[in-house]
Write a protein that binds this DNA or RNA. Structure first.
Lengths: 329, 329
DNA sequence: GGCCAATCTGCAATCGATTACAGTTCTTGT
DNA sequence: ACAAGAACTGTAATCGATTGCAGATTGGCC
């Protein structure tokens, strides 16, 4: 900047003001500065600027797995909203490693490298529990964080899963199983609760062993379905905690000669891109993935700007009927 | 840091040195500093540190779409390698908007916010063309960048596609079509070239209209296949530029009553997660997605450390035979 | 001419670290 | 007792911006 000042024959203060478009600088000097900038290709140093202004223009996003197509779309929404506001998105893939989340959160948020934090992990790093610096700089998406007053953007998982289960009950199914996600995960718990609620409302039993699963993966779906089919009285329908599980479940059923939906109905959750392209087309619950991310980012930006925000924004889901469900034969 | 110094009864210089573990500080003072840090929960300001050291510890990754499952896995590999080296990953979703790439690259790389740049876009922003600051700080992945001496980590797209096509020819197919990616895209061009090479080697014609496509999406696959099936002499096999196109193509074929692979063989490219779970299991070319990312990040880190790197690292692909291909009926 | 207001402009402090260089204290050998 | 050297420690410059405050210039008006 000193070079520019020399070249334009003004002081660094004038250069700084001219580049910020301040009305304090005369038109003539603005032009001299602009010309010098053009000549040299000067670009302001963002780090120095950040130090002075105490702003980095960055937000950290912690996500269990970037490769998960659901999270990937949430990230897309976040990036879009941040980009719009001139912010950058720093992504950390934590793989549920809490120790790493802890270290990272501290160095990033407390260390001034990032101004805010968006959590897709459903878990707030201990190191930020009572860090005053972190107050009002964190937002949770997809999964709410218990008892810490952290604002969040979510869907009503229990209600959505109840709707999915009710759909199967409405078709006439009585023996319905649930393939859940990883134990301990908040989404798993809520979706499981929705399943149980719908079954209870219909007065249907959920025998031991009719709830399986353990991961949000295709493989878990295959294994879960295999186990269900090995029962003496296998279910006639399965409602899965996400689409990957459902796709795996359908694969396992087909491999054992059971046609979907004729011999087995399957419902997914999320409506990932391939859900409509697999055979049979997957009946599922559509989440507004990108909107979740966008709203979370906007909420964080509002928070950083000192505005008030709603405590928990709950976006609507939509049941998508395709070809993987039918009345029991 | 001044507070810590006061609390520990030493100077800021000693605090700084103590925290860096310098051998110049006495054991006693190190302990006093450590204790003061523990008491206050002090964390060093990364921005100030970055300004002084001229390092931000950040790398910018530009990607056309985060939501693309192939790119998502490349990002995973990049993040893993960066994390290991204590670097952070800034992700920008460019959606092929070159103007935005330009602005972003300048402010990030030239503005000192990031130390390096990884391009998944197949395109180097003009603003960096002859920016000396950018020299030796850029690496391309997946898609090479023509004529600018930018090191890259890629696969041999043409060879892989030739192998895929040759597989179909080996099964006895003669009328083989290709559903390509977006026009102008480097991968599209290379994969198309591989397809033509294989056909030429086998002495097979590629009539006009037997090359379709236009996007790396499920929908493009559906439309492409529909168009092929409307021909007087439809192909007996289709080799697709990626897995999404292939999945869409299979869907369109089935909807028109043509069974895959009995009535139509289909080959994909990438081996995304669902490729093995769809029905029929997709025959495809596996790319080492995560390795591509990891190697690119390592290459960039080596570059930043001033080490010499190979100009273009080419990783091996692998043909995965599943159930979507069979001899023509 | 003299005074005031309006309009710029520049000096220097500031953000929070790192580190060269100079200074202090303590050992040790003679 | 004193010099030399070892082992720390502290002062202040530095990284590259932004901005409060004071000073300079200009124009208008009586």
């Amino acid at each position: 900047m000193a070079d520019i000042a020399r070249l334009a024959g003004v002081s660094v203060a004038t250069v700084s003001r001219a580049m910020a478009g301040s009305s304090l600088v005369s038109q003539e000097n603005k032009e001299r500065v602009a010309s010098a900038v053009r000549q040299t290709g000067y670009v302001v140093n963002q780090v120095a600027r950040g130090l002075r202004l105490q702003r980095s223009g960055l937000v950290l996003v912690m996500v269990p797995s970037i490769a998960n197509p659901f999270f990937a779309h949430v990230l897309l929404g976040i990036e879009e909203a941040l980009q719009e506001a001139g912010f950058g998105m720093l992504v950390a893939n934590t793989g549920d490693d809490h120790a790493r989340e802890d270290v990272l959160a501290r160095s990033m948020l407390t260390g001034g490298k990032t101004e805010g934090l968006i959590l897709l992990t459903g878990h707030c790093p201990d190191s930020l529990r009572d860090e005053p610096q972190a107050k009002g700089r964190i937002v949770a998406v997809s999964e709410e964080i218990a008892g810490q007053g952290i604002p969040s953007v979510t869907i009503d998982n229990a209600a959505a899963m109840r709707e999915a289960t009710a759909h199967l009950i409405g078709l006439g199914h009585r023996r319905i199983a649930h393939l859940a996600g990883p134990a301990g995960n908040g989404l798993t718990v809520q979706r499981l609760a929705g399943f149980h609620a719908a079954m209870r409302e219909a007065g249907l039993p959920v025998p031991r062993g009719m709830v399986g699963g353990g991961a949000f993966t295709i493989q878990a779906g295959e294994e879960g379905m295999s186990r269900l089919l090995a029962r003496q009285a296998p279910p006639t329908a399965v409602v899965c905690a996400n689409d990957e599980i459902a796709i795996g479940a359908i694969k396992a059923a087909r491999e054992r000669g059971i046609p979907v939906p004729a011999g087995m109905s399957v419902v997914g959750f999320d409506d990932i891109d391939v859900a409509r392209a697999v055979h049979p087309g997957l009946t599922t619950i559509r989440q507004p993935r990108q909107d979740l991310g966008r709203e979370a980012a906007r909420m964080l930006l509002a928070l950083l700007a000192g505005e008030a925000v709603v405590r928990n924004l709950c976006l609507p889901t939509q049941m998508i009927l395709r070809a993987s469900t039918a009345p029991p034969s």
